[in-house]
Nucleic acid binder design. Structure first.
Ligand SMILES: [Mn+2]
Ligand SMILES: [Mn+2]
Ligand SMILES: [Zn+2]
Ligand SMILES: [Zn+2]
Lengths: 135, 135
DNA sequence: CACATATATTGTAATAATTACAATATTGCA
DNA sequence: TGCAATATTGTAATTATTACAATATATGTG
């Protein structure tokens, strides 16, 4: 938990209790790609007064400072990811899980380069289908 | 316009006036990846009685029948694409345009295969950054 | 053609995720 | 400790989308 405190300070984010807890949750659920709602529900058990707005705000600042990133695959909600390294995802159409996949992609490493004259800042790749637990 | 009529019939979709017009719009704007709102606004000029719900319904059936596909990149809205071949996109953070990019991706052709044990049905790739008109 | 039935369209209301905003509380520093 | 800046909270507003019921249209049959 002290490590999380330091991480926040390093990024110039005031380490409030709520922020510590959100980042702690993200660190412990790094394979989950949780929604705001999931984070809120979990933290509300420990912090009954926490507000959904605070979770939104907190994730917003985390994204700004590069601590997490938003994954928009489902189209209905943002999923959050503490792994900010560019990597690919798999969305299971049955259970809705979003899973990291480790695939070699020819497009990785193109950051800063041009495609068809457009300057690349982010590279996103994902699959949709049926995850191995649901097959 | 007769070609569009035939396309609808081939897919087993009753070729109503509204559906003809939506598909016509999509065919004429294949580089635009329009939103429901954009399609609705445009068609409303010619068909003042058209309903937003109809546009939603129509695009829904088109997706079911494989005539168009939905592109979820922005996170706030679905963009529609009449090009149902798996291809990659570029989202410009400045102007919001979504542009097709023709890049060789090592993941193409993996449909039906497995990644980490998960069965792939769709492959999606996109970049975010600044498009060439906005650089 | 008239009618019956199925399907499509429309308008409105409901839902769900997110953002805006203002009041209150907390933090870090002088 | 006390002040100013910042964070949190609760609520209301916004936006995209879906649900639903009433009306309209299309299609097939006698
Ligand atoms: Mn991930
Ligand atoms: Mn496209
Ligand atoms: Zn699954
Ligand atoms: Zn642009």
């Amino acid at each position: 938990m002290e490590k999380i405190n330091i991480t926040l300070k390093e990024k110039g984010i005031k380490p409030t209790y709520q922020r510590l807890k959100v980042l702690d949750y993200m660190s412990k659920n790094l394979r989950n790609h949780p929604t705001v709602e999931m984070i809120y529900e979990e933290l509300a058990k420990e912090i009954p007064t926490i507000s959904l707005t605070t979770v939104y705000n907190t994730l917003g600042t985390f994204i700004e400072k590069g601590l997490v990133c938003g994954v928009t695959i489902t189209g209905t909600e943002v999923r959050y990811d503490i792994n900010t390294e560019s990597h690919h995802h798999f969305l299971c159409k049955k259970c809705g899980d979003i899973i990291d996949v480790d695939v070699p992609c020819s497009l990785s490493g193109k950051k800063g380069e041009l495609v068809d004259g457009h300057k690349i800042e982010e590279i996103h790749g994902y699959f949709k289908g049926t995850c191995r637990s649901c097959i």
